[in-house]
Design a protein around this nucleic acid. Structure first.
Length: 782
DNA sequence: GGACACTGTTTTTTT
DNA sequence: AACAGTGTCC
């Protein structure tokens, strides 16, 4: 009889061999499945590889590594010894029978990620490396997971499964209407109230339980209660409620909880440092037996403002008994210089789990630091650096990434990139979906799915104009108030209410349109319905009559772009539905659309960049008041959060890091003096090469008598920029340019004006147009 | 009901 | 500088 230890030892050797592509710590993370596990994964430490391997392992072997049961014979032992030497044997039934202990079905695994992109990548890699079908295993974000659960069990908490999702704009609108109704506009701001309510929800404090502190805003509990009543009446959830109500559902309904727990036998949570107490509750409900692995990095917790609690990861070991912690500190991404800088900066924080990144790659390039006078110089400097990086190091456009603290900073950089003909993509801000015409069409689609969605119904009931004014709407609200009827039902039966006599035809006509489209939506594809909708409400005609030709064209283009977006969705979704599409538009994150292969420089906020990596990273606007932000420095813990953000930003870079600041920054349209960020001083000086941006015109041949150090300075400078006379001279007649709406065209003439240039462009499709250079945002193609 | 001018506010980060 | 919200007039 082979002893238990002999067999265990043999198994360990085989598994170490099979997972030899991982380092020791990663293997430990893969093999530790006895109880709750926390993987403390530093930036770039191969965490995704470890997680993918772990899932593969759980599905193939279950919990072999630590399995104590063993009744193997000597013959089994000899067989395993053969398997150790001969890999091909490891597909045999007997091998698996000896090695596996409670393997988990992919169907019974749940992986929660931070973005849909991360979830998609996980599914892809599992499919490719372990042949695990992506639709069997649920890899989702917190929000999309909750939508799935709620769609199935909505009736248990008094909702219908065709519920719609309110984004921030929608909830602000709703809260604002409640504030107005109670004549509280003087002292109550929808945004502020919405934040308070959201913060309460993130701590799982319901409207009934909420107790307001402080002397101001005493009416918040009342608004909170009404807001929840309105949401329920509208059959809608806001972002927080998606999770809140799922928690409520699981904790109050044993049958549902059993169904869910039966399905999910092992739960993985990524980016655990960014979860909030509400999400913690959800996680504990999903993994009551401690079959759970969370992955995170306390140093990368940057979403406190969204209610994320760094406490979740810091106290994981207390919250989940017998938890094990594995640290991944070897970095496979960056040079030692970049890691040293990151380590040095984050070392200034207190209350960390503690961790030090290292790599066996060399030191690489020093970090390049430059202080410029203005934002346009900053932009120009970056463009020059990109161009020289492409020339001397052979980098491609998509190897570069520009990161900033606030979205507003993208403007000036975009301008420089356009002027230099460098293709780029901006992420975040999501201006497209915020456009009025897009919001309007989406509101229609939401109402078609869920006619009780009152906020969106109000948005479109008179858009395009159909003669239904405020007076009528007030009357309808009054009827709803006194009878408890739904807004839509009142409209649909307008003739039954004498006070609505004058507009009853218009109202009922509108309701019939919605009803008709709603019926249709059950039999046609989302894109077909979209076409039908535009035709029925004569949307394009309305845009044409409302705006002048150029603007109408641009808005119609946007609507068509939305149609493409729907088609794209239909192509990718396994089971495309209108509700599914709307869900996606509500829950997409900025980076979900990032295509690493698109040949363009990437622009985004440091927050957005979490989880991404680029060869060359530019961190811009390193100035006091901007980064760290002025608001954060007075807040307890605010500075440490900014520093973590700085750590995240630095560790995005693989090979080269550039950091810039300016002396004069525009704020609210006026220039303000700025001094370099304190974070720059936290980077050890020996890691930094300071580049001095040279202000003079390029001088013809350097004079012999020039002192050596000044010459060195000149050659050291990555760029020598002619004094920025004005960037508009970059436009020349004959250039090929591209406009976001009009497409490609040729520049016919350039007329200099006081602060701008008038451009005449002959577009291939749209014909000749006159545009202002600063406004048109043209991209120079050649 | 809509067009227009004027005012005040905004910039921290987002599922 | 850009934009949303408000007020005024038609």
């Amino acid at each position: 009889m082979a002893t238990k230890n002999e067999i265990l030892d043999l198994r360990k050797k085989i598994l170490d061999d099979e997972y030899s592509h991982l380092n020791k710590e990663q293997r430990e993370a893969v093999f530790s499945n006895d109880g709750p596990l926390l993987i403390l994964a530093g930036a770039g430490s191969g965490k995704t590889t470890a997680v993918i391997s772990k899932i593969g392992y759980l599905i193939r072997y279950g919990n072999t590594y630590n399995s104590t049961q063993s009744d193997a014979t000597d013959d089994d032992k000899a067989y395993l010894e053969e398997c150790l030497k001969d890999k091909t044997k490891r597909t045999e039934q007997r091998y698996l029978k000896l090695m596996a202990s409670d393997p988990i079905n992919a169907y019974n695994l749940l992986a929660i990620t931070f973005t849909n992109k991360a979830a998609g990548e996980m599914r892809e890699r599992l499919e490719k490396q372990y042949n695990i079908s992506g639709d069997k295993l649920w890899a989702l974000t917190f929000h999309s997971l909750c939508v799935r659960i709620l769609r199935r069990f909505a009736d248990r908490i008094g909702f219908q499964s065709n519920f719609t999702i309110y984004d921030d704009t929608d909830s602000h609108k709703l809260i604002d209407s409640i504030i107005k109704k109670h004549h509280l506009s003087e002292n109550y701001n929808a945004k502020v109230v919405s934040r308070i309510i959201s913060a309460a929800k993130c701590k799982y404090v319901s409207a009934g339980e909420y107790v307001h502190e402080g002397r101001d805003l005493q009416q918040v509990p009342m608004i909170y209660k009404e807001y929840q009543a309105e949401l329920k009446n509208a059959n809608a959830f806001d972002f927080d409620d998606l999770i809140f109500m799922t928690v409520r559902l699981l904790s109050s309904n044993e049958e549902v909880r059993k169904t869910i727990n039966n399905r999910f036998q092992y739960v993985l949570v990524d980016e655990y440092q960014d979860t909030n107490p509400l999400q913690y509750r959800l996680v504990s409900l999903l993994a009551p037996t401690g079959k759970i692995c969370v992955v995170g990095d306390d140093d990368q917790s940057i979403y406190r403002f969204m209610g994320a609690s760094i406490e979740n990861i810091l106290s994981f070991e207390r919250q989940f008994t017998d938890a094990k912690v594995v640290r991944l500190e070897q970095n496979y991404r960056s040079t030692q210089t970049i890691l040293d800088a990151a380590n040095a900066v984050i070392a200034n924080n207190e209350g960390r789990k503690g961790k030090r990144l290292w790599t066996d790659q060399g030191p690489g390039h020093n970090i390049t630091v430059n202080q410029l006078n203005t934002q346009s110089e900053e932009g120009e400097y970056i463009c020059r650096s990109i161009m020289s990086g492409k020339g001397t190091h052979g980098f491609k456009n998509n190897d570069f990434c520009i990161l900033y603290r606030t979205n507003a900073q993208s403007n000036s950089i975009e301008h420089s990139l356009r002027m230099n003909g460098i293709p780029y993509r901006v992420f975040g801000g999501q201006p497209f979906f915020k456009r009025k015409e897009i919001q309007d069409v989406l509101a229609y689609l939401n109402v078609i799915c869920n006619p009780y969605d009152r906020t969106r119904l109000l948005r479109i009931i008179n858009e395009p104009k159909r003669g239904i004014g405020d007076t009528t709407l007030d009357k309808i609200s009054g009827i709803c108030e006194s009878t408890g009827a739904h807004f839509f039902d009142v409209i649909a039966n307008a003739a039954a209410y004498p006070e609505l006599q004058r507009s009853s035809e218009k109202l009922m006509d509108f309701a019939r349109t919605i009803k008709m489209l709603s019926d249709k939506s059950k039999v046609v594809t989302p894109s077909q319905l979209f076409t039908e909708l535009l035709a029925t409400v004569r949307f394009e005609q309305a845009l044409r009559s409302q705006y002048d030709l150029t603007e109408a064209i641009s808005r119609i283009e946007n609507v068509h772009e939305l149609q493409n977006n729907i088609l794209e969705y239909e192509k990718n979704a396994e089971e495309p539905t209108l509700l599914g599409y709307l869900e996606q538009t509500a829950l997409v994150s900025a980076v979900d659309n990032l295509d690493e292969n698109e040949p363009a420089v990437t622009l985004m906020t440091m927050h957005c960049a979490k989880g991404l990596e680029f060869d060359v990273v530019f961190l811009i606007g390193f100035e006091e008041g901007l980064f760290p932000s002025a608001m954060s420095v007075n807040e307890p813990g605010g500075l440490e959060e900014e520093r973590r953000l700085c750590y995240v930003a630095i560790t995005r870079a693989r090979k080269q890091l550039f950091i810039t600041s300016v002396r004069s920054r525009m704020l609210y349209g006026t220039p303000r003096p700025a001094i370099p960020s304190r974070f720059l001083k936290e980077i050890p000086p020996e890691l930094i090469t300071e580049v001095h941006h040279i202000q003079q015109e390029i001088q013809p041949p350097v004079r012999r008598s020039k002192p050596m150090h000044e010459r060195a300075l000149l050659t050291n400078a990555v760029t020598v920029i002619p004094k920025s006379k004005d960037t508009k001279t970059s436009y020349r007649a004959g250039q090929k340019v591209k406009h976001k709406v009009f497409g490609e065209g040729v520049l016919v003439s350039v007329t200099e004006m006081s602060s701008d240039s008038l451009l005449e462009v002959d577009f291939a499709t749209a014909g000749k147009k006159k545009l202002m250079a600063n406004f048109a945002k043209l991209m120079i193609i050649e």
